[in-house]
């Protein structure tokens, strides 16, 4: 069928894209020079022989192409090598830290989606009312404020002044809240998720409201009302699905770049996620870690784009093959 072929082609395209990124990434890292020399050259007592043997140990002595294909073959088996700083397999670290990141990012996007749908419906069905203007103003403000500012504000209010929510980390270091890892974990999630929800909701609401206002003006909405459908059904059944089509692109990007935007959140809340890890890896020139994370971010972005395209086909019959 047309749709299956379409997805197959998109998959092939995505694979090519990932391959392209891997080449560029490898070339750029390679251009910096031999990491062993950079990392060890300044140390006292480093002879050329030592550097050479360490290089051989890390497989850095072959030609560029040989090393690229060795690396490519390894990452295809989900082997990203060993972190230089932490001396742990990068793949394991990606999983551990990745789960921490997803733990705050996915709920944040989903909550923001639900909240923005509800706010948009309220605003768009009362276009040009005070509520509508309030929503637009609020969403613009939320969209314009930098994420870290909101994060710091949240810490100030809820941790410093009210003292009811933790301001850093994913778990308590000594006494778990109510002696439960689950409750303690959720307790720590509140502020970072809150910050992301705030930011995502603002942008999603701006998009969703204007799209919904546009759709509610369409003839088929008047026609749906004229056939006696209750207003709730007209808005949620008929308008929302159409209004969702332009928002889908942004939602896809949101999922795609959530690892890319993680550094800010995770720095503000000292969250042990991929974002914080990425910053660390770059500061310390942990090559395997940098390359592993970059590839994971690429995977996520390409995967999200692919899912967005598929979602388009599912939601809008006009895109399907006739």
């Amino acid at each position: 069928m047309g749709t299956a072929r379409y997805i197959a082609r998109r998959l092939i395209f995505s694979a090519c894209l990932i391959l392209g990124v891997s080449v560029i990434l490898f070339a750029m890292i390679n251009a910096i020079g031999n990491p062993i020399e950079i990392l060890l050259a300044e140390r006292p007592g480093m002879t050329d022989e030592v550097i050479e043997s360490v290089s051989r140990y890390y497989g850095l002595d072959g030609s560029v192409t040989d090393r690229y294909f060795t690396w490519l073959w390894a990452i295809l088996r989900f082997d990203f090598g060993t972190s230089i700083i932490y001396n742990q397999p990068v793949s394991e670290m990606l999983v551990t830290y990745g789960l921490e990141t997803l733990k705050i990012q996915i709920p944040a996007i989903l909550i923001a989606l639900v909240v923005s749908v509800l706010i948009s419906v309220m605003a768009a069905t009362r276009q040009y009312s005070r509520l509508d203007f309030g929503v637009i103003a609020g969403a613009m403000l939320g969209h314009s404020l930098p994420g870290f500012f909101i994060g710091i504000l949240l810490i100030l209010v809820f941790s410093y002044w009210l003292g009811i929510l933790p301001s850093y980390g994913a778990y308590s270091t000594r006494n778990m809240l109510m002696n439960s890892t689950l409750i303690d974990g959720l307790w720590h999630m509140v502020l970072p998720v809150g910050m992301l929800v705030f930011f995502n909701t603002a942008t999603l609401t701006l998009l969703m409201r204007s799209s919904l206002v546009e759709v509610l003006r369409q003839d088929f909405i008047t026609a749906a009302r004229a056939s006696g459908l209750p207003e709730r059904r007209v808005v949620f059944g008929h308008a929302l699905r159409n209004a969702f089509i332009p928002v889908l692109t942004y939602l896809g990007i949101l999922f795609g770049v959530m690892l890319g935007t993680a550094p800010v959140t995770e720095t503000v809340f000292t969250w042990p996620g991929l974002g914080a890890l990425y910053i660390m890896a770059i500061q310390q020139l942990d090559y395997p870690l940098i390359m592993g994370e970059t590839m994971i971010i690429t995977f996520m972005l390409v995967g999200a784009t692919l899912l967005t395209d598929i979602a388009y086909v599912a939601i809008d019959p006009r895109i399907r093959l006739a």
Binding site: F220, A224, I315
Partner: peptide
């Protein structure tokens, strides 16, 4: 307008 009076997604 028959072109715009039906919901395109149903």
């Amino acid at each position: 307008e028959p072109m715009t009076s039906l919901n395109p997604v149903f």
